[in-house]
Computed example of a mutant assay.
Amino acid sequence: MRRFAEAEDLSAVVRDALGAGCRIVGVDRLRGGSKKGAYRVRLDGGQRASVIVYSWANEENFWPGAAEDDLTDPFAPASGLVPFLAAQHTLAEVGARVPRLLLADDTKQRYPADLAVVEDIPGGTLEALFETDPARAEAALDELARTLDLMRHHHAPRYGRVDLLERGGIALGSSCEQLILDRARRDLEEAAGRDTRINAVRGQLDDRLQELRALVAPRAEYGLIHGELGPDHVLIDAEGQPVLIDIEGLMYFDTEWEHVFLRLRFAERYPALSRPGLDPRRLDLYGLAMHLSLVAGPLRLLDGDYPDRDFMHGIAEHNLRQALTLLP
């Protein structure tokens, strides 16, 4: 049985973040996290009505057999206070809006896990705003496009997670495209072992991946990407500005990888985010690889006790069908 944080567990860290006058009146664990816990802590007696507390306790990680992250692999599970803080200050320096950090604690003295306290953004997600106020959501989408432009043009000569590169590390692999191919072939093998439809065309999918990889020319400059930027990972602040969350996977990489995910998650709204100059051959390779990743990953997560099982199964099923349509 997993034990999640309660009010008494978080009282010390919230008091130190906001002052002794703040009193916790309620704690709600937010839906959707699979690697960390996110808690809305409702307050009385201070200037803020609520804050968000992130917890990287082992109990919050639903990935079966999760091991220590390999920082050299850009696609290793991105979780922890260190990558969070590296992403937080990098995005802020670039000019991308992120929740303001109020306190970070890795001492384990206030709570037996790394924690961060950040501002609670009042406007909800961009995904929800499209349902309740489409005009305001469209304006926020335009602002998000400008944020992505800032990130795209923030270049580095090497690819890899920002926390790795800050330490002078070197990322796994010889190139982004080769890394994606190798990862896609592993995802294909895993998915084929879990679904007969993928297994039946495993050879064809593998051939297609290698054909697409052969068409991609080398590159030696990389932009800043979020990696999993859907409308549920964008909050809207009181001024209508987009605020990026779930940022631990921030990396320098091919911008095309970001855009195949944006295209998938924003669907008919993606044209507002699309930009000229993207490499169509990379988009083709990365599109197929992304679908295979979103089959293998959710099916792997379902081996454990992740609670929102229908939702995760739906992701796998949708992407399985999409991958099959990309066969010649």
Rank of each mutant, 00 (worst) to 15 (best):
E93H: 15
L103Q: 12
V41G: 01
G169I: 01
L101E: 10
A87T: 02
R29W: 02
A289E: 03
A139T: 11
R29N: 05
Y222F: 12
D9I: 13
R197K: 14
L164I: 04
V234W: 04
E59K: 12
T132Q: 12
P74A: 03
D114K: 07
L273G: 02
G314D: 14
E143V: 01
W257Q: 07
D106G: 14
A323R: 00
L188P: 07
A17W: 06
I315E: 04
S55E: 03
L103Y: 06
F130A: 06
P77C: 00
V41E: 11
S175G: 15
V82A: 02
A87D: 08
R321D: 04
E239W: 09
V234C: 03
W257F: 08
P77E: 08
R269W: 13
Q322G: 05
N58S: 11
L141Q: 08
D9T: 11
L18R: 02
D142V: 11
P112W: 11
R29T: 08
L165R: 03
A38Q: 04
Y111V: 02
W63M: 13
A76H: 00
R186W: 11
M251A: 09
R183W: 01
E211L: 15
A296I: 07
R202V: 10
G33V: 04
F261D: 02
L299W: 06
G277C: 10
D114E: 15
T107W: 14
H291A: 09
G314Q: 14
A5W: 00
S34T: 13
D237L: 05
L209V: 04
V51E: 06
A49G: 15
G19R: 05
D206L: 12
A87E: 02
L224P: 08
F261P: 00
V25K: 07
L273P: 01
L30H: 09
F311V: 07
L181N: 00
M251R: 08
Y159G: 05
R202D: 12
A139Q: 12
G80M: 11
L205T: 00
G297S: 03
D9G: 10
R42H: 05
D44R: 12
V53F: 05
I198Y: 00
A272S: 15
Y39K: 10
H313M: 13
D232G: 14
E256D: 10
V94I: 12
H291V: 01
F4R: 03
D237R: 05
G203L: 05
G46D: 14
Y270H: 11
Y222A: 05
E268L: 04
S175C: 14
D120W: 08
D182V: 12
I247H: 01
D305A: 15
R321W: 00
E131A: 13
L188N: 04
S274T: 13
A145N: 07
E256A: 10
